[in-house]
């Protein structure tokens, strides 16, 4: 296990607290980053699809409990996001920041699109498609794309220390890759 459960739980708790309280103060044009999703992507990028899915499920569950309506919805799509990111990780270089940024952007785009399209909120919400293409374009253009860009910046900040630690580990191990 590259990511220990207590570490994941503690990080998710801190990020959830930040996400639902202080993050509104760093909104840009009414958009804030999704710290839980970004952490899921970073975790999956670092540790692979299985652990990525687990972290995504835990983070989604936390979001379901905090502000969700359909219990388990965010847990399922969080797990899916983690799993898919982990699969990409297997095929690409995980010590490449550009790849991480691209993956974060893509996964955020898919994740939030799924949320806006499927999250019926037990009859409370209509799908974003119900408002027609103009409304859906607004959602993509004004909410999802800026959030994806914001998440990329957060992912870079979150992953840099991991990358630095990994490079340090390689140097210590005489250039061989070691597993933590």
């Amino acid at each position: 296990m590259k990511i220990k459960l207590p570490f994941a739980l503690l990080t998710i708790s801190i990020l959830l607290l930040l996400q639902t309280t202080l993050l509104e103060y760093v909104e840009i044009a009414g958009v804030k980053p999704n710290l839980l999703l970004t952490f899921t992507i970073c975790a999956a990028f670092y540790a692979g699809s299985r652990e990525g899915a687990a972290v995504g499920a835990l983070a989604g569950l936390a979001q379901d409990m905090a502000t969700g309506i359909i219990f388990g919805f965010y847990a399922i799509i969080g797990a899916a996001a983690g799993f898919i990111t982990g699969l990409i990780n297997r095929r690409l270089y995980r010590d490449n920041m550009i790849v991480l940024v691209l993956v974060t952007f893509l996964v955020t785009l898919i994740y939030e699109s799924v949320v806006s399209l499927l999250y019926g909120r037990a009859g409370l919400h209509g799908s974003a498609l119900a408002g027609g293409p103009a409304k859906y374009w607004f959602v993509i253009n004004r909410l999802i794309l800026p959030e994806a860009a914001y998440n990329c910046a957060v992912a870079t900040a979150l992953y840099l220390p991991v990358l630095a630690r990994e490079k340090n580990g390689k140097i210590k191990a005489g250039g061989k890759t070691v597993t933590y």
Binding site: T20, T21, V31, T67, V115, S116, Y119
Partner: peptide
Amino acid sequence: VIAKDAGNLFNIFV
């Protein structure tokens, strides 16, 4: 009000 919505799409608070 102790918490705001985690995402950008909805407006639910706690």
